[in-house]
Amino acid sequence: MNQYSKKNYSRSKWKKHPPIIVHWFEDKHGPNGNIIGSIPKNSSPFTVDTIEQLLASSGTFDFAKLGLYDPRCNWLDASVDFAPHFHVIDSNSGKALTIVAKAPYGDKLPYDPTLDREGRGFTSFQGIILRRITTLRTRLVETSDASLGDEWFQSFRALVSECVSLIDTTLHQLYFKAKLDPLAGWKFDEKALGPRHGRRLTDKFNWVYKITGKFLHADTEKKNFVAIKDLRNHLQHFDPPSFCYTLEDAATWLNQVIDCGRLNWAIRQCAGSPLSVPLIELLLQRAVQFVPEHPAAMRVPQPDNVGYLSTKPQAVEGGDV
């Protein structure tokens, strides 16, 4: 509601607020796909109850159903995805037809994704990673009866890796935006921010305040992200070269995945960036709970010397990536 109305009301205030209508403009494209103008649009009247009912009933945010525009962030979420399946040579110049995509960081970016033959290019990974996380997590829950098999475990490894990539790419997008095309009120001091490479990922959380001037109030989310990140390191490097987990461990990790989405949201809030539909879908994922095959059988609480804690590597100074 705040995003579309450009206001900053509490939920209780919105509950008392009459329906609102959003007036916006849709790009008008010419025959070659270029923007040649704009078309005025009006949303349907809606309230906070309308939004909540839509989210609860669908598990996503169908903005078009309310006549609204896509809520994505233009510099964080919008991506030029291109995948030519041809290699065509111009008979006059002898050169191949070339596609060049411009990333949304101004004109100073020293590189542009370029293809002149079959391939795939992106200018943002936000959407593809967020959708992958939600798809993998949903699949793992729905196939949890096969959670002791190799395929389930390999999909779980992929999920953990994607969660770390999500936060990593978000922080680097913030860095490049601040360096090349900063928003009003942002600061960019390359020396104060420190190097992008060869340092702990968690040190980069300091970039948020140093760039936006807003504190990243997400202690629980950062703590759970660090747990996922440490798990990712173990599952990628296998140091030590052993691994063990209980399904109760797995349930904890699957719930920490949602906190990785919440951390992405917290970074966006500091940056003044809106939610995207793929992020909304991740945030709407439900918490999971381990249910044993024989729920009536007697069980004892999991001790510290079994499951992942029996193989968890100790923190190594300087060993983060």
Results as ranks from 00 to 15, higher is better:
Met1Leu: 11
Met1Phe: 10
Tyr4Lys: 09
Tyr9Ala: 09
Ser10Ala: 13
Ser12Pro: 03
Lys16Leu: 12
Pro18Ser: 13
Ile21Cys: 09
Phe25Trp: 11
Asp27Thr: 07
Gly30Thr: 00
Asn34Val: 05
Ser38Ile: 04
Lys41Arg: 15
Asn42Val: 03
Ser44Lys: 15
Gly59Leu: 02
Asp62Pro: 06
Asp62Cys: 02
Ala64Ser: 15
Lys65Trp: 07
Lys65Asp: 11
Cys73Val: 01
Trp75His: 12
Trp75Glu: 15
Trp75Val: 07
Leu76Ala: 12
Leu76Pro: 05
Asp77Phe: 02
Ala78Met: 08
Val80Cys: 10
Asp81Leu: 09
Ala83Gln: 13
Pro84Ile: 00
His87Tyr: 09
His87Asp: 14
Asp90Glu: 11
Asp90Tyr: 01
Ser91Lys: 13
Ala96Ile: 00
Val100Tyr: 03
Val100Cys: 05
Ala101Asn: 02
Ala103Glu: 15
Gly106Phe: 07
Asp107Arg: 05
Lys108Asp: 15
Leu109Asn: 10
Pro110Ile: 01
Pro110Lys: 04
Thr114Cys: 06
Leu115Trp: 01
Asp116Met: 01
Thr123Gly: 03
Phe125Glu: 14
Leu130Asn: 04
Ile133Leu: 06
Arg137Gly: 02
Val141Pro: 06
Val141Ala: 11
Thr143Cys: 05
Asp145Glu: 14
Asp145Leu: 09
Ser147Val: 01
Ser147Ile: 02
Phe153Arg: 15
Glu162Val: 02
Glu162Met: 12
Asp168Arg: 11
Thr169Lys: 12
Thr170Lys: 11
Phe176Pro: 05
Lys179Asp: 13
Leu180Asp: 15
Ala184Met: 08
Gly185Thr: 04
Trp186Val: 08
Gly194Ala: 04
Pro195Met: 07
His197Ile: 10
His197Gln: 14
Arg200Thr: 08
Arg200Tyr: 05
Thr202Ile: 08
Lys214Ser: 09
Phe215Met: 11
Leu216Phe: 00
His217Phe: 07
His217Val: 13
His217Ser: 12
Asn224Ser: 09
Val226Tyr: 02
Ala227His: 10
Asp230Met: 00
Asn233Pro: 00
His237Ile: 00
Phe238Asn: 06
Asp239Glu: 13
Pro240Ser: 04
Cys244Val: 05
Tyr245Pro: 03
Thr246Phe: 01
Glu248Pro: 04
Asp249Gly: 02
Gln256Ile: 00
Gly261Met: 01
Ala266Met: 00
Ile267Gln: 06
Arg268Cys: 14
Cys270His: 02
Gly272Lys: 07
Ser276Thr: 01
Ser276Asn: 04
Glu281Thr: 03
Leu282Gln: 08
Gln285Glu: 14
Val288Leu: 06
Val288Met: 08
Val291Asp: 12
Pro292Ser: 10
Ala296Thr: 13
Arg299Asp: 11
Arg299Met: 14
Val300Ser: 13
Val300Gly: 10
Pro301Gly: 05
Pro303Thr: 05
Gly307Ala: 05
Gly307Met: 06
Leu309Gly: 06
Leu309His: 11
Lys312Cys: 09
Gln314Asp: 12
Gln314Asn: 12
Gln314Ser: 13
Ala315Val: 09
Ala315Met: 05
Val316Thr: 10
Gly319Val: 01
